[in-house]
């Protein structure tokens, strides 16, 4: 059952939910972006509908709520180790369909690929997801081609239409709240994108042989290896460990993990001083194949959810979707090599 609420009523619902949950949604950080007086849209705690940014795509995804950019795992002294505590409240995360699909990818790595991750799991269990209806794609989106434009595994759905809030909840307590503050509407289903301005096509016979294509060479020079694409990506989850000891007590400290980028120097450095993928073109190939080939080989579905944030955030105007669309030609090139 769907419900229609005024924004005031919805704010009361949020206030009620706020007693149990910390509510996170994409919100506007005025002037918070790279360049002066440019807003940044990213996830933060919200208390009202007005704070939820529904008009603009978030520059950074929800993933930082489950995998913070910097997360303390434990504190240690000489003889003791103490796990860092977890936030007390449960969490509600508002996100679009592409990002809800990304959650499955995060779960795949952090709950199933090898042993489950304690820190991810304890946060993950606290989270309820509210799907933000997404009536129209942004310029760089290609969710339809990645099959991530629709989601039905949400705990609740939310959409603003004509200044009114439409909600549907699967959670019985939330349903009761909506009944209390809103009026029932028949047949509410969250909007989803059916076509995107950006299209991608990934060759069916894509294989690691594409590494030999010259398609990657231009990125040796074009890419600056800054990692923005990874940090903005909702499915990039690599991390690096850091041990810190406190400057005022050298015997105590903490171990943290911080988000890592396969595009940034040092990602593959081994203790002896060696490293792999020194060229940025090689890193690009590694990232692209991870997103649209390797992960699928391992898990049966594509990792990339087509949100296009990597395109939006790249300071060098390198388009991930444009690379995907070069793969067919790249495969032809390497197949041609094989025939000679």
């Amino acid at each position: 059952m769907g419900y229609r609420l005024s924004t005031d009523a919805m704010n009361q619902v949020l206030a009620e939910l706020g007693k149990q949950y910390a509510i996170y949604a994409p919100k506007c950080y005025p002037g918070g972006n790279t360049f002066s007086e440019v807003d940044c849209i990213r996830y933060g705690e919200v208390h009202t509908v007005e704070e939820i940014e529904t008009e603009r795509k978030s520059d950074y995804s929800f993933k930082e709520l489950l995998l913070p950019f910097s997360e303390t795992l434990f504190f240690f002294t000489e003889n003791t180790i103490q796990e860092a505590s977890v936030i007390e409240k449960d969490m509600v995360i508002f996100l679009r369909s592409c990002d809800l699909h990304a959650v499955r990818r995060l779960d795949e790595i952090y709950l199933r690929n090898g042993l489950p991750d304690f820190y991810y799991q304890r946060l993950r269990e606290k989270v309820q997801f509210v799907l933000i209806g997404c009536p129209a794609a942004f310029d760089s989106c290609f969710c339809v081609d990645m099959g991530t434009n629709r989601s039905d595994n949400y705990d609740a759905a939310f959409e603003l239409r004509g200044g009114q809030v439409y909600m549907a909840a699967r959670h019985p307590q939330w349903e009761a709240l909506l009944r209390q503050y809103g009026e029932p509407v028949e047949g509410f289903a969250p909007s989803y994108v059916t076509e995107t301005p950006t299209r991608v096509s990934i060759p069916a016979d894509l294989s690691p042989a594409v590494a030999k294509s010259t398609v990657w060479d231009e990125y040796d020079k074009r890419c600056i290896g800054c990692g923005r694409c990874n940090y903005a990506c909702p499915t990039c989850t690599c991390f690096t460990m850091q041990d810190i000891y406190y400057t005022d007590n050298a015997k105590a400290g903490e171990r943290r993990r911080v988000a890592a980028s396969c595009m940034v120097d040092g990602f593959t450095d081994v203790a002896g001083g060696g490293s792999y993928r020194k060229k940025h073109g090689e890193r690009m190939r590694f990232k692209v194949l991870h997103k649209v080939y390797d992960f699928k080989q391992r898990n049966g579905y594509q990792m990339c959810v087509g949100c296009g944030r990597c395109d939006d955030v790249c300071p060098e105007y390198i388009s991930f979707s444009a690379i995907l669309n070069k793969l067919e030609e790249a495969m032809q090139e390497v197949r041609g090599d094989g025939q000679q």
Partner: peptide
């Protein structure tokens, strides 16, 4: 193979080569 590893349990991503995790 020797690769950089920060977790040993298929999470950190540093040791991945193609669809293989060296640690796993």
């Amino acid at each position: 193979y020797e690769r950089k590893m920060c977790c040993g349990i298929g999470k950190c991503g540093h040791c991945k080569i193609d669809d293989v995790y060296v640690c796993l």
